[in-house]
């Protein structure tokens, strides 16, 4: 036991010394060493064109990161969303469960304090998540961030009140997966609308946001006097829906008690015999 502790101490001390030496060394060559000396040309271009005065080269967003995520490199983000959705669908197909008849109530094995705190946190969390989603084109944040923040309160709810409480509120994996799919369909529609415009009216590109030099198509820059960021705002809202319900699906499935699966497996075995 004592030797184990000594070994641990030696390893931790060497890690600490190594990281401090590394930190001091990188500081000697200007804050981040060779990485932090200069901003790359591409980065400068992104910042310059994010909110350019000429609408034909601008992204209509005030936030460069969101502009990169949903406009400059929008196709990458669409692929990422696809990967996320595929992961959720894979989890859904692993936990094969068709119907859960047991209806529960909002009873919990915890004391009143965590239950009350969760109930108070619920509206606050929803408010924060929607603020981050709707202000994605103005301040740091966006659809994925907001979706994962909303999912946290879902997980807390599951942990404190158990799966049956979710079921009592008519929240089950099938329904949350449906909402996730609706969000994804909306994202696909937003990226396909310019193509429809191209077919029926004038020249336009796939997932086009603002008018380009040779195309007049553009999503609204502002809504009710507030900066909306064209398709960036729409993408943020629908990604928010897709991600939050995707995470909720995964955690609703994970929180189903193990004995239900065991019973189901036993039922399948007896059917085979």
């Amino acid at each position: 036991m004592n030797r184990d502790l000594n070994k641990k101490l030696i390893v931790i001390t060497s890690i600490v010394v190594f990281s401090f030496i590394l930190a001091v060394y990188t500081n000697l060559t200007e804050s981040l060493g060779p990485l932090g000396l200069d901003t790359r040309f591409l980065g400068k271009l992104y910042v310059y064109f994010t909110n350019h005065e000429d609408p034909r080269v601008s992204t209509a967003s005030l936030e460069p990161v969101t502009a990169i995520v949903w406009d400059f490199r929008g196709l990458d983000t669409l692929y990422e969303t696809t990967v996320f959705a595929m992961a959720i669908i894979a989890i859904y197909s692993l936990f094969r469960i068709d119907r859960l008849e047991e209806k529960g109530s909002l009873n919990s094995s915890f004391t009143i304090i965590p239950m009350l705190v969760t109930k108070i946190l619920l509206p606050i969390n929803i408010a924060i998540a929607s603020t981050i989603a709707f202000h994605g084109s103005i301040s740091p944040g966006g659809g994925f961030q907001a979706g994962s923040i909303l999912a946290v309160i879902g997980v807390l709810f599951v942990v404190i009140f158990s799966y049956y409480a979710l079921n009592a509120k008519s929240i089950n994996p099938h329904r949350t997966l449906l909402f996730m799919s609706l969000g994804l369909i909306a994202i696909v529609l937003v990226s396909l609308i310019p193509l429809a415009f191209d077919v029926f009216f004038d020249y336009a590109y796939l997932i086009q946001n603002q008018p380009k030099l040779d195309s007049d198509f553009g999503y609204p820059k502002t809504v009710g006097g507030l900066v909306f960021g064209g398709s960036i705002g729409l993408f943020n809202i629908f990604e928010f829906i897709a991600v939050s319900f995707g995470f909720l699906t995964a955690f609703a499935l994970l929180s189903i008690p193990e004995y239900i699966f065991k019973e189901k497996l036993r039922g399948e075995e007896s059917l085979e015999q």
Partner: peptide, 14 residues
Amino acid sequence: PDIVLVYIPVSVGL
């Protein structure tokens, strides 16, 4: 800050 906003809920919560 964009990364922090997604890193905290995912790595500390989910």
